[in-house]
């Protein structure tokens, strides 16, 4: 293969790659940013919500938490407007760090304190923080097309009416015994105590930084499946949380008919139960405004 052919080949490939990337960058600026990427499954990823958070005006109220909070869909809180930024599978500290990186903060930040056994996810923080390189993300054409074609009806920012008639239906019955059994095993003992304490210390620190800037941070605890609330980890988490944030006015006090709640596993509410809890939370949140 002669040298001239090789150089021509490499030049063509390089220029093609360059122009393709420039086209994606132009498309990004034309559409106003990368699309809200549809996750590979419907169990939910927090990415789209955080992309929307970066792109849209800062909301007045946000919910931060884990997958427990993730299932409380934003329309459940209507007419109260709240942006759910819960991140399944990651510490709430992750979300707090990202929020704190923005120059403008929401007025009210509601923070779930059920699960403290994870440390902050620095990769996620880097990806979605205000000063992250994600600002320069370019459109991924394949994902953009799939995201457009498969956009979910209740995508971020679109307020679909909620079918509240499900509240008139009887609660569903699930066989979630195996999940509760595993959950109890996972949450027994005191292996997580150190992480819980460290995480809570870090939350105290970051809440102070946030509140200095004028926002108000409130906390809440979501119900767990029967048998989980009395596990070692749940009890330790609750005790440490109330020890660090002992002011009762910081906590959302809300009640719900516990016998009406159903869990798909050891911790996650089904849709009807999530609606019941969201309504109860909505009233408590309104009282805090």
């Amino acid at each position: 293969m002669n040298r001239k052919y090789q150089m021509a080949w490499l030049a063509k490939a390089t220029l093609t790659a360059f122009f393709a990337l420039v086209s994606c960058a132009f498309a990004t600026s034309f559409f106003g940013g990368p699309p809200e990427i549809q996750p590979a499954d419907n169990d939910g990823e927090a990415g789209p919500a955080w992309i929307a958070y970066r792109r849209e005006p800062t909301p007045q109220s946000v919910l931060l938490g884990t997958s427990l909070t993730y299932h409380l869909k934003e329309p459940f809180f209507l007419p109260v407007s709240v942006r759910n930024l819960a991140i399944p599978g990651r510490s709430v500290l992750t979300a707090l760090e990202i929020i704190a990186s923005y120059p403008k903060l929401p007025d009210n930040i509601f923070v779930e304190l059920n699960v403290m056994t994870w440390r902050a996810d620095n990769d996620f923080i880097r990806k979605f923080s205000y000063n992250s390189g994600a600002h320069f993300q370019v459109i991924a054409p394949i994902r953009a097309i799939v995201a457009y074609l498969g956009r979910p009806a209740d995508k971020v920012g679109v307020r679909q009416p909620v079918d509240e008639t499900i509240l008139n239906q009887p609660p569903a019955e699930y066989d979630n015994r195996i999940y509760i059994q595993r959950g109890r095993v996972a949450w027994s003992g005191h292996n997580h105590d150190a992480v819980i304490s460290e995480t809570m210390d870090a939350i105290v620190h970051i809440v102070q930084k946030i509140e200095v800037r004028g926002s108000r941070v409130y906390f809440f605890e979501l119900p767990l499946a029967p048998g989980m609330a009395d596990t070692d980890v749940a009890k330790t988490t609750r005790a440490v949380a109330h020890q660090h944030f002992s002011d009762a006015s910081r906590w959302l006090q809300f009640s719900y008919p516990a016998d009406q709640l159903r869990f798909r596993d050891h911790a996650h509410l089904d849709e009807r139960s999530a609606l019941i809890v969201a309504h109860a939370m909505r009233d408590a949140m309104t009282a805090k405004h």
Partner: peptide
Amino acid sequence: AEPYLYGLMVALMYVE
């Protein structure tokens, strides 16, 4: 189209 296709693959592997 070989060099162009490889160029597109480079761009695609970056953005996707």
